[in-house]
């Protein structure tokens, strides 16, 4: 009797979870399918599978020099910001993990607050400041904002990991004549690899996907980011649905592929107690 009850609840739970998975996947599948249909076909049979898959939308996108330029801009901004943020955060986290005292605690919470403070509330001053500095329409203004905005999360995860590395190892290295920089670069960083991966994947998402700051800081058409272009694209070509869906699909695939590569690392990092520091 008891055994049967367990299997009933198992069936119910599994059904619920599978239905939810379908609900999560369906919109994405629909988008992928629609990107392979002609505009006519989309209008006539919006829900069906593409009768004869076409890829004209994707071809159009990759023949468009602008599209490639925006892709290049986004890759540049994302890579530089991720690298800058990681580099400064590693040193910051090392200091916060290894030193003790009131100042250290205060700094820790000052940075921690940034994990939840929406940086966009400061957009008015950022706009003004970059304007004064002549950095409107510069990809570096975006890079600086993204670096600042991702430091808190990186600090949180990395500090947690560094605390798990015994401080005696540092002492031993110091006695062997290593400098602070050598200890961080040669000893701590190699041990931090999993944490660095988690941080890089997690920070990639908001940087790559952001349109808020490009909308406010970037007006020069040649400096637009990829996602900013997709946003405007949606408004401009509302009659060529095939092209619109191809653009949306490609933009989504970039995020999803990145997530797929790092999901194991990310999910583990987020659930296995790393968040507890």
């Amino acid at each position: 009797m008891a055994k049967k009850k367990i299997s009933v609840s198992k069936i119910l739970i599994t059904t619920f979870l599978v239905l939810h998975a379908l609900y999560v996947i369906y919109p994405l599948i629909l988008m992928f399918m629609t990107s392979m249909k002609s505009t006519m076909d989309i209008m006539k049979n919006p829900l069906s599978f593409p009768k004869k898959p076409i890829f004209t939308g994707f071809v159009k996108i990759f023949r468009d020099a602008n599209f490639l330029l925006y892709l290049k801009n986004s890759v540049f901004v994302t890579l530089v910001a991720l690298f800058a943020s990681l580099t400064v955060s590693i040193f910051l986290s090392y200091a916060l993990a290894r030193y003790k005292g009131k100042t250290v605690n205060r700094l820790y919470f000052l940075f921690l607050a940034g994990m939840i403070i929406p940086i966009r509330l400061g957009v008015l001053f950022l706009n003004l400041m970059f304007n004064k500095l002549g950095m409107l329409d510069s990809l570096f203004s975006l890079i600086l904002i993204y670096t600042a905005m991702t430091i808190p999360f990186s600090m949180y995860i990395l500090t947690g990991y560094i605390r798990m590395i015994p401080a005696e190892m540092d002492e031993a290295a110091f006695i062997d004549g290593c400098s602070n920089l050598q200890v961080v670069g040669r000893m701590v960083v190699p041990l931090l690899k999993p944490a660095i991966a988690t941080v890089a994947i997690y920070n990639f998402i908001p940087i790559w996907n952001d349109v808020y700051f490009p909308l406010i800081l970037i007006f020069d058409p040649s400096k637009k980011t990829f996602m900013q272009h997709v946003t405007m694209f949606f408004g401009q070509y509302q009659t060529d649905w095939n092209l619109v869906f191809s653009a949306l699909t490609f933009a989504t695939l970039v995020s999803l592929v990145f997530y797929a590569i790092g999901s194991k690392q990310l999910v583990q990092g987020l659930t296995a107690g790393a968040l507890k520091g």
């Binding site: 040193f91 090392y94 940075f111 400061g122 001053f125 600086l144 670096t147």
Partner: peptide
């Protein structure tokens, strides 16, 4: 300690905290 903290602190204050307050 401060050499390690400063780069982050400067970026964080200049491009996050200051804009919030100044806005």
């Amino acid at each position: 300690f401060w050499l390690f903290v400063l780069p982050s602190l400067i970026i964080y204050v200049l491009f996050m905290l200051l804009p919030l307050v100044a806005s």
